[in-house]
């Protein structure tokens, strides 16, 4: 009897949240999958089912492939830049935990993660500016030829990687810091007694023990890397004339197809591709974790 009453309470309490959740998350996810199979154009009355035709078209759409390649490069670029840096910085901040400056370091590294994206991107837009920016001024000062950062096909992708890494670093450092704080102190003391240097215990103790954290941060960084949009938008958005090279990324291509070419079904099929990538990354993370658990 009591159990039933409790069950009723649980159902009643969860119901509003569940309803909202179903409406704003489950339904649209299902709808994305459905739309991807239709030729669903905003303006036309006819919205026929076309099976996998959207996906077939995607495979030959060079703008989409461009976007896919760019996005992948950006995501892995951010990963390669962020994770090692975060690990080292977190280790050093942890080493200096007791110093008065630790709080400052933590805040400074973390602030880029919380400031609004658009103003931050504006700041970088100026830094990278080919004619007015301090980056080229610095290069010039050292006699290195100046670069047109935002216009070169390769450099403009690097600019986005730098911007995204700048923003992602703080989060990774923070998570690593938590990881360091949870490491058993006794192990380090034992290592020290065995004559291991700080650097040695970092390599041989911290890194292996932080592997689950590294995996987690990597996947989070990669997934958010695959969703990059605002950075590309702001760095290249039309100030009239010569704003910068448009680095096509997945979300941008998706929104363009949906709201500019009005091909919502086609855009949905891009979203499905994005979903598959993210799912794959997450699955890889889980399986790697499990493997580690067995070993």
């Amino acid at each position: 009897m009591l159990k039933r009453k409790r069950f009723i309470f649980a159902m009643l309490a969860i119901l509003p949240t569940l309803a909202i959740f179903a409406y704003v998350r489950l339904y649209p996810i299902a709808d994305t999958l459905r739309l991807s199979l239709y030729q669903w154009n905003i303006l036309s009355k006819n919205k026929p089912f076309i099976g996998l035709a959207n996906f077939r078209e995607l495979m030959g759409d060079h703008l989409f492939l461009d976007a896919l390649i760019n996005t992948t490069i950006i995501a892995f670029g951010v990963l390669a830049l962020t994770i090692p840096m975060a690990l080292v910085i977190a280790a050093l901040i942890f080493h200096r935990t007791r110093s008065r400056m630790a709080g400052f370091y933590e805040t400074a590294v973390f602030i880029p993660h919380v400031v609004s994206l658009v103003p931050a991107a504006m700041a970088w837009k100026w830094i990278f500016d080919a004619r007015l920016g301090p980056l080229n001024a610095l290069l010039d000062f050292f006699g290195i030829p100046m670069q047109s950062w935002l216009f070169d096909p390769v450099l403009s992708v690097i600019c986005i990687i730098v911007l995204c890494s700048w923003q992602a670093l703080g989060y990774a450092v923070l998570i690593y810091l938590v990881g360091f704080k949870n490491l058993p102190v006794s192990l380090y003391e034992a290592a020290k007694l065995d004559g291991a240097s700080g650097r040695q215990s970092f390599w041989h103790l911290s890194i292996p023990m932080l592997k689950p954290i590294t995996l987690y941060v990597s996947v989070v960084t990669l997934v958010s890397g695959f969703n990059v949009y605002a950075q590309a938008f702001v760095l290249a958005s039309d100030a009239q004339g010569a704003p910068g090279r448009q680095v096509r990324v997945l979300v941008l291509d998706m929104l363009e197809n949906s709201f500019r070419n009005y091909r919502v079904g086609y855009a949905a099929s891009e979203a499905v591709v994005l979903l598959v990538i993210v799912l794959a990354l997450t699955l890889i993370q889980f399986s790697m974790l499990r493997e580690k658990g067995k070993a």
Partner: peptide, 11 residues
């Protein structure tokens, strides 16, 4: 002319 030069009415 080059892509990174200021362009258009603004320039």
């Amino acid at each position: 002319v080059s892509p990174e030069m200021p362009a258009d009415a603004d320039a």
